[in-house]
Simulated assay, not measured.
Amino acid sequence: MRMRDTFIKPMHREGIRFVAIFAAVTLVLFLIWEPLGWIGVGLTVWCYYFFRDPERVTPARPGLIVSPADGVVSLIEPAVPPAELGMADAPLTRVSVFMSVFNCHVNRSPIAGEVVSVAYRPGKFFNASLDKASVDNERNGLRIRMDDGRDLAVVQIAGLVARRIVCFVKPGDRLRTGERFGLIRFGSRLDVYLPPGVVPLVEIGQTMVAGETVIAELAQAGQAEA
C-alpha cells in the first residue's frame, strides 16, 4: 500500500454535492474573515472523510455473518424484528452497531442472499445509541434470505443528526457478503437480527469494521442443536 492511500480514501458518490457545498461555504468564509475560512477547510475535510468508501476484505469462509457498519457494538439483546419486514413475531438476537459522525457510513450486507423485502418507515430522531431508537426512529429494513432458506434482517436507523437513509437495493436483488447496500448521513446505527439459534461472537463495546469483523457464524447454530 502506498503512503498516499493511507490518508486519501475513495469517496462515495453520495458525498460529492455535500463536499461541494462545504467547499463553496469555505470560500465565502475566507472572503469574510480568513480564520473562518480555515475552519471551513477543516469542516470540508471532515465531510470528505465522512463519505469515504474504502475497500474492505471480507472473510471468504461461507456462513460468516459480518458487521454491516463501522462503529461500536452498543446493544446485544433479544428483540422482535420490525413488523414491516413480515418476519415471524418472535424475538431474535439483535446486535446493534452505533456509528459516530467520525465513522465510515457506507453499509454492507452481513451475509450473502436474496433481498426478500425492503421496508422504509418514517419516525423520530432520538440518539441512535438509545434502545428506543430501534422502535421510534426513522428506519429502513432489509430482509435477506440465505441459500439455506433462513432469513436475516438488517435495519438502518437514523440518529440524532441523521436526516437521510439511502438504500441502493430492491427486492429480488442478490447480495454478496460485505457488498455495499446503502448508507446513512451523519450519525446513526445498524441493527442485525440473527437467525434463530445463532449466537453472536462479539461483545458490547467492541469496535467493528464493516464487511470484515465477524458478528456470528451460521454453523454454530447446527452445532448447538446437535
Rank of each mutant, 00 (worst) to 15 (best):
M1H: 15
M1D: 15
M1Y: 14
R2K: 14
R2P: 15
R4S: 12
P10W: 02
P10K: 06
H12Q: 07
R13Y: 01
I16F: 15
R17S: 05
V19L: 08
I21F: 13
F22T: 02
A24E: 06
L27A: 14
V28L: 13
F30I: 04
I32N: 04
W33A: 13
L43S: 03
W46P: 03
W46L: 15
Y49K: 06
F50R: 08
R52V: 04
P54T: 09
A60H: 03
A60C: 00
P62G: 04
V66P: 05
A69G: 08
D70V: 03
G71K: 06
V72L: 04
E77I: 07
A79C: 08
V80W: 11
E84N: 10
E84L: 06
E84P: 00
L85T: 08
G86T: 14
D89E: 15
L92H: 15
L92E: 12
V95W: 09
M99D: 09
S100N: 09
F102P: 07
N103P: 11
H105Y: 05
N107K: 12
S109I: 02
I111D: 00
I111Y: 10
A112E: 12
A112H: 04
G113A: 02
V116E: 11
A119G: 01
R121E: 12
P122L: 04
G123A: 05
F126I: 00
A128Q: 03
D131C: 01
K132Q: 15
D136A: 13
R139Y: 06
N140M: 14
L142R: 11
R143K: 15
R145P: 00
R145T: 07
D147F: 02
D148H: 10
G149Y: 10
G149P: 09
A153L: 13
V154Q: 05
V155F: 10
I157F: 07
I157H: 05
A158F: 01
A158E: 01
I165V: 08
V166R: 06
C167G: 01
F168I: 00
V169G: 02
G172Q: 06
L175Y: 07
G178F: 08
E179N: 02
L183G: 02
L183Q: 04
F186K: 12
G187R: 14
G187W: 13
V198C: 08
P200A: 11
P200D: 13
P200I: 11
E203I: 07
I204Y: 03
I204P: 15
G205T: 15
G205A: 14
M208Q: 14
V209E: 12
A210L: 07
A210R: 09
T213Y: 11
V214S: 04
G222K: 07
A224G: 11
E225T: 08
A226E: 12
